[in-house]
């Protein structure tokens, strides 16, 4: 395995402090390396590279490239679920026939994701683990009720647990993934009859932009009303968030102008975004209100 330390003149002050590079071929091997601790995981690298360069993330002594781990790529049907391997790239998701058929809202979000170059390298697992409140796949996956699959090898054998994606995030860049765990897949339940889902991303330009806000809405539409509603917002809190009060304002009510207006008002009050270089909190709340209303108008008319 290549080792860079011998060439470094003064390892503690040079930006590159990686002592070991690992490129495991199997999940078992990868989890074994993770279990030893102090590992930075590299998948597509589209977040890791700029963030380490900018000094926001420090490399751990071991850099593990999981790109060659077998079985972490691709989309398949798994009973009543769509199973998406963590290494599936955003470009692959965008074109995948199963995704287009069963989770078109996710493909739509992928179509608004960064640029072709980044979509070709960036992976779904990476987008989730980066845990940005503005991560483009997170809001649609949350409203699709996705769950993540986490594997580890604590006692010499591989174990797996599942967690709803909506509960996975604990803060910007932080998740419930333990240091010895690898996110291996995402599972999305197959849509029920009457299923509708919408995604909206607002940025100042249609490509290469980070969300100012994003909105996901999904539910079952029957007789002009939505049930089993999930609403999620991106870039208005430290993590992508479900909006239970907005959901409650809509659940089971006929989707008329009055209900839509009330839901949009609730949405505006429910979020508490911050001011940053991209937008003020006030403007984000206005966008949440106006666009939730616009999306619900479209759902009502569809």
């Amino acid at each position: 395995m290549p080792d860079c330390t011998t060439n470094c003149v003064n390892e503690d002050i040079l930006t590159m402090t990686i002592e070991r590079y690992a490129a495991p071929q199997s999940l078992d091997e990868a989890l074994g390396i993770l279990q030893q601790g102090e590992v930075t995981i590299l998948a597509g690298g589209t977040d890791l590279m700029p963030q380490t360069k900018a000094g926001r993330i420090a490399f751990k002594p071991t850099l593990m490239n999981i790109g060659r781990v077998a079985g972490l790529k691709g989309v398949s049907l798994d009973g009543a679920y769509l199973r998406i391997g963590a290494l599936t790239t955003i470009s692959e998701l965008l074109r995948d026939p199963l995704v287009v058929q069963h989770a078109p809202v996710l493909a739509e979000a992928c179509d608004q994701f960064a640029s072709d170059q980044i979509r070709n390298a960036g992976t779904l697992g990476g987008n989730i683990n980066n845990a940005s409140p503005a991560g483009d796949t997170l809001v649609p996956l949350i409203v699709l009720d996705a769950e993540v699959e986490l594997a580890s090898k604590p006692n010499g054998s591989v174990t797996t647990r599942r967690l709803p994606l909506a509960e996975f995030f604990t803060g910007p860049g932080r998740t419930k993934r333990a240091a010895n765990e690898l996110l291996t897949a995402v599972r999305v339940p197959l849509p029920q009859p009457g299923h509708v889902a919408r995604f909206y991303k607002f940025g100042t330009r249609p490509a290469l932009d980070i969300s100012t806000i994003s909105i996901g809405i999904a539910g079952i539409k029957r007789d002009g009303a939505l049930t089993d509603i999930r609403v999620a917002f991106g870039a208005v809190a430290p993590t992508p968030v479900r909006a239970p009060r907005t959901e409650a304002a809509l659940e089971g009510r006929p989707l008329d102008a009055e209900a839509i207006a009330a839901a949009a008002d609730t949405a505006r009050d429910e979020v508490s975004p911050i001011d940053d270089v991209r937008a003020t909190a006030w403007y984000r709340k206005e966008l949440i209100h106006n666009m939730t209303r616009r999306m619900l108008d479209h759902v009502a008319k569809a």
């Binding site: 100042t204 330009r205 249609p206 490509a207 290469l208 932009d209 980070i210 270089v277 991209r278």
Partner: peptide, 8 residues
């Protein structure tokens, strides 16, 4: 965050 116009 410095937003140049892009092709679309």
């Amino acid at each position: 965050d410095y937003k140049l116009v892009t092709a679309p």
